[in-house]
Amino acid sequence: MPVDTKRVRGPDESQSPLIFLPKSAQKVVPKEGREDGRQRGQTDVRPVFARCGLVSQAKGSAYIEAGNTKLMCSVYGPREIERKDETDMKSGRLFCDFRFAPFSCQKRGAWIQGSEEKDFSLALLESLRPGVCLHKYPRSQIEVNVMVLENDGSVLAHAVTCASLALADAGIEMYDLVLGCSLRQDGATYLIDPTFPEESGSCVADNAENQGSVTVALLPSLNQVSGLQSDGEMGEETLVDAVRACIEGCHKLYPVVQQALIKSVRRKAPPPEN
């Protein structure tokens, strides 16, 4: 590529100006209560909007919105496995691809998949796999693509829910839906389904105990946990309570997700009019 030598090139690495704001101008997460009116220590997840079938070319797709967190997922397959050397005669393979749109986070991301996205892809794969009847799809592959359009916290949890919704919409046989819920532990209390500032900000003074976050993926009707991610540090009891709270949070999502599925089935096969 020809390089314009007269042009002043920008630095290789650049930072968002927002992080250089003085401490006083930065938005602080309140120590009591939460900004969006929810309560700390309660399992009141953000209201969720979910809908199936927005990508016409995909076998199944879903869109989910919780607060300002917006993401979509499409499912392709089952189709013949591409890499022949990895063909498994007995069961199918699930591929997950998790991506942030470059503009989805506060800091602009790159188009190439970063290590955080790879990490999320793997977590997503491990959470979904126990829910899918892969033995019904021998020698085939199912692809799950998740794209985060706007990141306002708890993306992995919502990605799990959205992906399982899309899988169900694609008519892939499953044992159960997989629901995700995450939580930010802040000392003695917790914030369920945290927003981005709540998730990343240090809410209280440094060196406080029990600072961390937990994400749980749950198969609700089988009551099985298929994914558990934990960051930060917590006491054992706190962790147990946090997981319990997440499970409760997952159950709150269940009816919404069920409704979205019923709607999509109705649309695909309208009930006979008589």
Partner: peptide, 15 residues
């Protein structure tokens, strides 16, 4: 290592 667990056994395992 690719299954699911019921919540109680997770708690036992953390302990």
């Amino acid at each position: 290592g690719r299954g699911s667990l019921d919540p109680e056994s997770i708690f036992e395992m953390t302990e």
